[in-house]
């Protein structure tokens, strides 16, 4: 029987070259989705195969890798991907945002500011921001070519007409370098401002949909909005129950069946770092309230 043998970081060199070329084009054309010949990975499509391929193509023995899912290093899929690279590339792994050189993420951007030299790799399920408005690739590609984004504005405006607000709270579309409308992956819109003018390189991999795109460092990323309905980044009234942070994205923890809730940081490394530095929360959450902050 053919016993499998694998290359450093799993992918063969030809595949890495193909992905590397796509990454360079993606950086050169910020926000544009470069088609690439995504491979069948030993994990399911939709579970981070795009991010895993991008990470595998850039990772070297000198890297320190952090993997998060929902902001946490301890969710099962994050653990599974981290173990995959520890095994196939032998790289050092970390949960510290600051110590990492490469961070692969699903659904969050770390709270701690990223620095130059770091690479943030996003796992992307549906890379096409126009897909839910127009299912045909031939059509959406034409719209991007002509920078014809009226349909997206109509959709956002219809939300306002119906709900009084833009009813998109995650995967909130952005315009990159004043040209391409881009899907930021399903991060909460709370995280959108972190993408703008970020010192780190941001790479996006969509395995099933076979697309790679990028935001170079120090690049303008603007959340789509209207003058009379500007983009807002909502925030919780209560601070984190564990570390007292008032500037972080919070998970709602249901503590009993009588309506009790508490709110704790979704970014576990950020929360633990603050607690280690002596910050404390109340440990019991106040009744939930939200406020809108500009």
């Amino acid at each position: 029987m053919n016993a499998p043998t694998y290359n450093f970081a799993y992918l063969d060199e030809q595949t890495k070259r193909m992905i590397r070329r796509a990454i360079l084009k993606a950086i050169a054309i910020p926000g544009y989705q470069v088609p690439f010949a995504s491979r069948e990975m030993p994990m399911p499509y939709g579970w981070g195969t795009g991010g895993v391929q991008v990470t595998a193509a850039i990772l070297g023995p000198q890297d320190v890798l952090k993997v998060i899912d929902q902001g946490s290093d301890d969710t099962t899929n994050a653990i599974s991907i981290r173990k995959f690279f520890a095994k196939t590339a032998g790289v050092e792994t970390t949960t510290s945002t600051d110590a990492a050189t490469v961070i692969q993420t699903r659904h969050r951007i770390p709270e701690a500011p990223l620095r130059a030299g770091q690479v943030l790799v996003y796992q992307v399920p549906i890379p096409e921001p126009l897909r839910f408005l127009e299912p045909r690739e031939t059509e959406t590609r034409r719209m991007h070519a002509l920078a014809e984004y009226g349909l997206m504005h109509v959709k956002l405006y219809e939300d306002i007409a119906r709900f009084g607000h833009i009813a998109t709270s995650y995967a909130y579309p952005v315009k990159v370098n004043a040209r391409y409308v881009m899907d930021p992956s399903p991060t909460p819109k709370f995280d959108n401002p972190k993408m703008d003018n970020c010192p780190a390189l941001q790479l996006f991999g969509a395995g099933r949909e076979k697309r790679i795109y990028a935001i170079p460092p120090y690049t303008s990323v603007v959340s789509l909005d209207f003058e009379d309905h500007p983009f807002t980044r909502y925030k919780f009234d209560a601070p984190c129950a564990l570390c007292g942070a008032e500037d972080s994205y919070l998970d709602e923890i249901v503590t009993d069946d009588k309506g009790s809730r508490m709110f704790v940081c979704s970014d576990t490394d950020y929360c633990e770092g603050r607690q280690a530095a002596g910050h404390r929360g109340v440990e019991s959450a106040a009744p939930h309230k939200e406020a809108v902050h500009g």
Partner: peptide
């Protein structure tokens, strides 16, 4: 897979 961050949003 967990989607609780987006669900929270």
């Amino acid at each position: 897979l967990p989607h609780y961050v987006d669900f929270q949003s």
